[in-house]
Amino acid sequence: MTDLPLQPSEQPAREPVFQVRGLAKVYGAGEAAVTALAGVDLDFQPGELIVLLGASGSGKSTLLNILGGLDLPTEGSVRYQGWDLGGAGEADLTRYRRDCVGFVFQFYNLIPSLTARENVALITELASAPMPPEEALGHVGLAARLDHFPAQLSGGEQQRVAIARAIAKRPQVLLCDEPTGALDVRTGITVLEAIGRLNRELGTLTVIITHNATIAAMADRVFTLSDGRITGRQTNARRAPVADLAW
């Protein structure tokens, strides 16, 4: 197994967590080949809140999957704290996801047979220095719903459990795939508030992919993707309070 950096980088500040160069991803071959990403270059810094914006088919999910160690690039390089994700084997990628990355999914993906607390504990059992499940759930305002099963929670509550599950192992990266996609506006804002607050409090690099341009206002930086390329880069001078967002 290659030397996977498990602890936050001790390199000088502003050393990127992710360094992506010339990234391309092509599915299929010949006439059926579909280019999902082409020539993507970007750097993500520690503690940043990044929004990847794009329509369906723009390549944002493919980029997130590659950053999350779920997929491998066809060309180019992706480095996580200097470690080459593109050249990693399956066991290394599993370890990377286990130790370094927290995932938040559009449809929450909680284990239906486990309570909120147990869903978080399931992941903390794998981690080396996790926060207690109760504390993680406290961070997302669910201290009173610890022993409820997913079927007993609302969509917003389920998504917040998913966020607690993602941050409980203290990952260096939090990847959120359309976290408000299945929620109504009010519930979506509650979820985004939790993500934003945790980003500030824990200093975790947070990447949100969404097709909802309104959400871009809460980010430090926004990348817009179209046809597999980065077509826009925007740095917000000030992160807008989530409560002010509306769509």
Partner: peptide, 14 residues
């Protein structure tokens, strides 16, 4: 399937 895939994504080994 979905539950097991989630666990794999979250870092569980095969």
């Amino acid at each position: 399937q979905r539950e097991l895939a989630t666990l794999r994504v979250l870092g569980f080994t095969r």
